[in-house]
Amino acid sequence: MRHEIIISNTTELFRVSADDVMAFRARGNYTVAVLNDGQEHVLSYQLGLLSEIVGEQLGADGDLFIRVGRSITINREYVFIINLPERKLELRSPQGKKVSETISKEALAKLKMIIELKNEKGGSHDAG
């Protein structure tokens, strides 16, 4: 387990490999961690704060995750479709789990560019 995320509060500790997280989705003041095996787990933190913590925990490897708009933080390794006209972002895991989210075109355009740039610079993130 190379990238480990631990989210802890007074009552619960949530520990997961960063590579297993497809996305963190905002649910009001809570965040749902969507895992690549289809499991979802509600975390009692706002997405923004949770994203900050994840970024801090992963350090330089935090760029595995990209927050896209206010509603979702994605693991870039699972990006499957970015469709600007339909404002659709779809993630897919090898296990078949899909996550779809409607995102603003502006944010999607930026995300598309980030993914393209990363690809041009020499391949995707090393998720090993």
């Binding site: 704060l49 994840v54 925990q57 490897d61 760029d63 708009g69």
Partner: peptide, 26 residues
Amino acid sequence: KEVAMMPDRMKNYVDTMSDDDVLILG
């Protein structure tokens, strides 16, 4: 780097992201 999160951090947290923003973590 950090396991426990301080309640104060939750209290004082203000999310400045907009729907059009994209933020690479870390």
